[in-house]
Amino acid sequence: MPVGVTVDVNAGVARVITRKSSRKVANVLAGGNTARVAVCQVDGGRWATLEGVAEVCTDAAVVEDAVARYGQRYGRTPAPDPERVVLLISIERAMGQALRARPRTAQAAA
């Protein structure tokens, strides 16, 4: 299922807001302290994947911060939800590909 992900590069953390009753939360809790996850984004020929270990956080201040980051990233703030939690992903590996303009060759420029 698609999710919105925010990334704090300096902290090495990705955040996903969700509900306590979601399958995502159940999967992370089943993994204990070593719940390995991957989040991906695809946009045409560009893509990014972040891998790491996730934990479920219910702390109100952390959830509020994650909702604010989501609002900044996606331009809309979700409605309040007392069941909201945040998945904190400690990023261990980041992969991706961005399309670049190919350099023009002398023959193509002629």
Results as ranks from 00 to 15, higher is better:
residue 2 P to S: 11
residue 2 P to D: 08
residue 2 P to M: 12
residue 3 V to A: 15
residue 3 V to I: 15
residue 4 G to F: 09
residue 5 V to W: 03
residue 6 T to R: 10
residue 6 T to L: 04
residue 6 T to F: 00
residue 6 T to K: 09
residue 7 V to A: 09
residue 8 D to A: 13
residue 8 D to L: 08
residue 9 V to I: 08
residue 9 V to C: 03
residue 10 N to Q: 14
residue 10 N to C: 10
residue 11 A to Q: 10
residue 12 G to R: 00
residue 13 V to A: 10
residue 15 R to A: 11
residue 16 V to W: 00
residue 16 V to R: 05
residue 17 I to E: 05
residue 18 T to S: 15
residue 21 S to P: 00
residue 23 R to N: 06
residue 25 V to R: 03
residue 25 V to G: 11
residue 25 V to M: 09
residue 28 V to L: 03
residue 29 L to T: 10
residue 29 L to I: 03
residue 30 A to T: 04
residue 30 A to G: 00
residue 31 G to P: 10
residue 31 G to Y: 13
residue 31 G to K: 14
residue 32 G to F: 13
residue 32 G to D: 12
residue 33 N to S: 14
residue 34 T to M: 02
residue 34 T to D: 14
residue 35 A to E: 09
residue 35 A to G: 09
residue 37 V to Y: 05
residue 38 A to Q: 10
residue 38 A to C: 11
residue 39 V to K: 08
residue 42 V to R: 11
residue 42 V to T: 12
residue 42 V to Q: 14
residue 44 G to Y: 05
residue 45 G to R: 07
residue 47 W to R: 01
residue 48 A to H: 03
residue 48 A to G: 11
residue 49 T to D: 01
residue 49 T to W: 00
residue 49 T to M: 09
residue 49 T to A: 10
residue 51 E to G: 08
residue 52 G to S: 05
residue 52 G to L: 02
residue 54 A to S: 13
residue 54 A to G: 14
residue 55 E to F: 01
residue 55 E to T: 15
residue 56 V to Q: 06
residue 56 V to D: 08
residue 56 V to F: 02
residue 57 C to A: 12
residue 57 C to M: 05
residue 59 D to A: 14
residue 60 A to H: 12
residue 61 A to V: 08
residue 61 A to H: 11
residue 61 A to E: 14
residue 61 A to T: 11
residue 62 V to I: 08
residue 62 V to D: 08
residue 63 V to G: 06
residue 65 D to F: 07
residue 66 A to W: 04
residue 67 V to A: 09
residue 68 A to S: 13
residue 69 R to N: 07
residue 70 Y to E: 01
residue 70 Y to D: 06
residue 70 Y to L: 11
residue 72 Q to G: 01
residue 73 R to N: 01
residue 74 Y to Q: 01
residue 74 Y to R: 00
residue 75 G to D: 02
residue 76 R to G: 00
residue 76 R to N: 01
residue 76 R to D: 00
residue 78 P to W: 07
residue 78 P to Q: 09
residue 78 P to D: 05
residue 79 A to D: 14
residue 79 A to W: 01
residue 79 A to M: 06
residue 81 D to G: 03
residue 82 P to K: 02
residue 84 R to Q: 12
residue 84 R to C: 06
residue 84 R to G: 04
residue 87 L to V: 03
residue 89 I to L: 03
residue 91 I to H: 05
residue 92 E to Y: 01
residue 93 R to D: 10
residue 93 R to T: 10
residue 94 A to M: 14
residue 94 A to C: 12
residue 94 A to H: 10
residue 96 G to C: 13
residue 96 G to W: 02
residue 96 G to I: 12
residue 97 Q to L: 13
residue 98 A to D: 13
residue 100 R to C: 11
residue 101 A to W: 01
residue 102 R to I: 12
residue 103 P to G: 03
residue 104 R to C: 10
residue 104 R to P: 01
residue 104 R to T: 15
residue 105 T to D: 15
residue 105 T to N: 05
residue 106 A to C: 02
residue 107 Q to G: 00
residue 107 Q to D: 11
residue 107 Q to I: 11
residue 109 A to D: 02
